[in-house]
Design a protein around this nucleic acid. Structure first.
Lengths: 344, 344
DNA sequence: ATCTGTGCCGTAAACGTTTCCGGTCTTGTG
DNA sequence: CACAAGACCGGAAACGTTTACGGCACAGAT
C-alpha cells in the first residue's frame, strides 16, 4: 500500500495526499477528510524508511541495556515495570521505543556508536551507567538527546535520573545509629560503579555526624549479587570485631547475606540487624521480612521519558537546562533491622 | 558520510563503490581494496534507511515481549540470559536484534500488525504465546519468518520452542507418587495459557498410570505468581482432605506457597512436599531449598535464533519443515520434595 | 476591466542506497 | 589483423517519502 496507490485511488497527486496526512497547509478541508478516510479504509501506513530517508528523523527512542553492568536488569525481575513506564510516557508523544542489548564483553561505546551511525533512534536512554562512561561524552558531543539512568562521576552537564543513594544511606544509617549500633558493615558495588563512591561517602558522613570513625575493614566492595552478598557477609562476620548491623546496597545481596548468616549460626533480625537496598520479589521471599526501601518504578520510567522528550524539543529551539534527579525511595520498616542489640 | 562523498573522495562512481562494499562482481581486486580501506578510514556506515528502502530488507529481528502474558519476563530476573543467547545467535548471522514491548492492555496482534506495516524487522520471535494467539496466524499468512517461544493450542504448522512441560510434570509426579503421595495439589496457569492444558493433561495421565483418579478440587488455576501461589495454597490446604504434596507450575508461586504454609503452621519439606517449576533467584532465597527444575536459558536463546535463521533462509529457497521443540529441563533434587509422609 | 492576493493542487527534486544496463578497454583467439 | 569475450566502470532508474515551487482559478479591490 503505497502513497502513490492511495493517491491514484483518490484521483489526487501524491503531494496533496502527503500534505493531507501530515496536517500541512495547502489542502482543502474536504480533500483532507477524503484522504484520511481512504487511508484508514485501505490500511495505508507510511513507509518508515522512505520517510526517515527524507526527513532524517525516526520518531523512535532507543533504550540501551548493558547486560554487564545493569544490576537493575540482573537483579530485578520487575525491571520491566520501568520499561513499561518509559513506553507509556513515550507513546503519549507519538514516539516508539526499541530496546537494544549490548552483550557481555561488548564495548558499550562502540555499540552505541554503531547504532548512532545507523540512525536507529532520535534519542537515547542509557542504563547501566558507569563511573566513567564514554557514551555520555559521545552523545553530548553529537548533540543527540539522551537521559541516563544512573550518573557518572562528573554529573553537571547532562540529564540523569538516579536512585537517591544519599538519602537511602543517610536514612538507613540514622536508623541503625539510633538503635545503638556502632559497627555497621557496608556491602557496596565496586569502584567502577559510581554509586559505590556515593554510598561510601554518605556512609562515612553519617558516622562522622555521630562522632564515629569509619573502620575500613567494615567496607566491602563487590558485585553485590547474591553470591557476593554471601561472601561479603562471611568475610565481615569473620572479623575480630564483627559488625552488629549490615547495610547491603545491592538488589540480591540480602539473599546471600541471609544464607551466610544462618550458616554461621546467626539469625537475621535477632542476632544482627540487616537492611537491604530495594524491595524486590527476591527479597520478599526472605524471612524474617527484610527492611529495605521501595520506589515506584513505573513513575520512574515515566519521568525518564518525559525528561527525554523535553530535551528533544529543546534541541530544536531554546536551550533547556539539564536536570539531575535523585529519585526518592521510601523506607519499609519490617523486621530485619531489629536485632544485634546484644552485640553492641 | 555519504556513499557519494566516499566515491568522490576515491574518484570513483557510487555504483562501483557500492559493488565493492557489497562484494559483488564487476570490480577489480585493487579498487575493492582501496574502497574498503577508505571506507573504514573515513568511518563510512551505509545508511540503513536508504538501503532498506531500496532492497526491502532490514537485517534485524524483532523480539516481541508482551508484558501481560510473559510470566517469563515477570517472574524471571534472568530472562535476560535468554535474550543474550538470542543476540549472540543472531550476530553470528549478521542480524541485529530489537526488543519491542507490548504494554499491558495493548492488543498484541495490532501491535505486531503495526510493526509489520512499518517494516521494523525481517523476522520475529514471539514471547508470551497464548492459547489462541492471533499473531501466529498473522505471521503465517504473510509468510514472515518467526519462531514462537511457547506454543498455542494447535501446534503443527509453525516452529516453536517451549519448555517440556510434559516431561516436567511426568517426572515430578513420578517422584511424588513413588514417595507414596496420593493427594497431590496442582497449581497451574489459567486456561487461556496453553501450558495449563498440557500440565493438567499430564497430571491426570500420571495419576491414571498409578491407578488413581484425579480430584478436581486439587487442581487450582490462577496467575501462578507469588500472590496467587499464596492464595492457592491456602485454598488447597483448607480442603477437608488437604494434599500431602504441592506441584507449583509457576516461577514465583513457591514463594507465596511457602508463606501460606508457614502461616498455617506447616513447614515445607517436613509437613508437606513442595516441587516448583524452575530454579530462579527468587526460589533460591527459599529455605528449605526448593526442589525444582533447571535449564540453560542461554542455550535456549541460541536455539531460538538458529531456528529463525534457518526458517528465514528457507523462505527464499527450498521449503524447510517447521520444527517443534520441547526444551528439556533437569530436576534439582533438593529438600522441599521431602516431607508430608505422615499425612499419607 | 485589470490587478492582486489567496486557496488549492500538481510537479519535481531530494534523501542514500542498490542494481540493471550499456560502454570502453584490454586480452585472448582465430 | 580482426573479432569475440570478458573485465571493469559510469550512468541512471528505482525504492517511498516530504516539501519547495510554480501554476491555475477564483475572490475581492481598485
Amino acid at each position: 500500500m503505497d502513497i502513490r496507490a492511495l493517491a491514484s485511488h483518490l484521483g489526487l497527486s501524491i503531494g496533496t495526499v502527503s500534505r493531507a496526512l501530515n496536517d500541512r497547509k495547502d489542502v482543502s478541508p474536504l480533500t483532507r477528510q477524503r484522504v484520511l478516510e481512504a487511508a484508514s479504509a485501505l490500511g495505508y501506513t507510511p513507509n518508515q524508511f522512505g520517510r526517515t530517508l527524507r526527513i532524517g528523523r525516526t520518531a523512535t527512542i532507543g533504550f540501551m541495556l548493558t547486560l554487564e553492568h545493569d544490576s537493575a536488569v540482573h537483579g530485578d525481575p520487575f525491571f520491566m515495570a520501568l520499561l513499561e513506564g518509559v513506553q507509556t510516557g513515550l507513546v503519549e508523544h507519538g514516539l516508539d521505543l526499541v530496546i537494544l542489548l549490548a552483550r557481555k564483553g561488548e564495548d558499550g561505546e562502540t555499540f552505541l556508536r554503531r547504532h548512532i551511525a545507523r540512525g536507529t533512534a532520535d534519542g537515547w536512554l542509557l542504563s547501566g551507567t558507569q563511573y566513567e562512561d564514554a557514551r555520555i561524552k559521545l552523545l553530548s558531543e553529537r548533540r543527540i538527546p539522551f537521559v541516563a539512568l544512573g550518573r557518572t562521576a562528573s554529573i553537571d552537564d547532562y540529564s540523569w535520573i538516579d536512585l537517591d543513594f544519599e538519602g537511602v544511606v543517610a536514612e538507613a544509617m540514622a536508623l541503625l545509629l539510633a538503635n545503638g549500633h556502632r559497627r555497621i558493615g557496608l556491602v557496596t558495588p565496586p569502584a567502577t560503579i559510581n554509586n559505590s563512591h556515593i554510598v561510601v561517602a554518605e556512609y562515612r558522613a553519617a558516622l562522622a555526624r555521630a562522632g564515629l570513625a569509619a573502620d575500613e575493614a567494615l567496607i566491602h566492595r563487590g558485585d553485590t549479587d547474591e553470591h557476593d552478598g554471601e561472601a561479603a557477609t562471611r568475610e565481615l562476620m569473620a572479623l575480630e570485631q564483627p559488625p552488629s548491623a549490615l547495610l547491603l546496597m545491592g538488589e540480591t545481596a540480602p539473599v546471600g547475606a541471609y544464607r551466610a548468616l544462618r550458616d554461621m549460626g546467626r539469625e537475621p533480625g535477632r542476632d544482627i540487624a540487616v537492611i537491604g537496598l530495594r524491595d524486590n520479589p527476591m527479597c520478599q521471599a526472605l524471612s524474617p521480612d527484610l527492611t529495605c526501601f521501595t520506589l515506584d518504578l513505573n513513575a520512574l520510567g515515566l519521568a525518564l521519558a518525559d525528561e527525554l522528550v523535553s530535551i528533544s524539543k529543546s534541541e530544536k529551539g531554546e536551550y533547556l537546562e539539564r536536570v539531575q534527579t535523585r529519585w526518592p525511595l521510601k523506607i519499609l520498616l519490617r523486621q530485619s533491622h531489629n536485632g544485634g542489640f546484644s552485640k553492641i
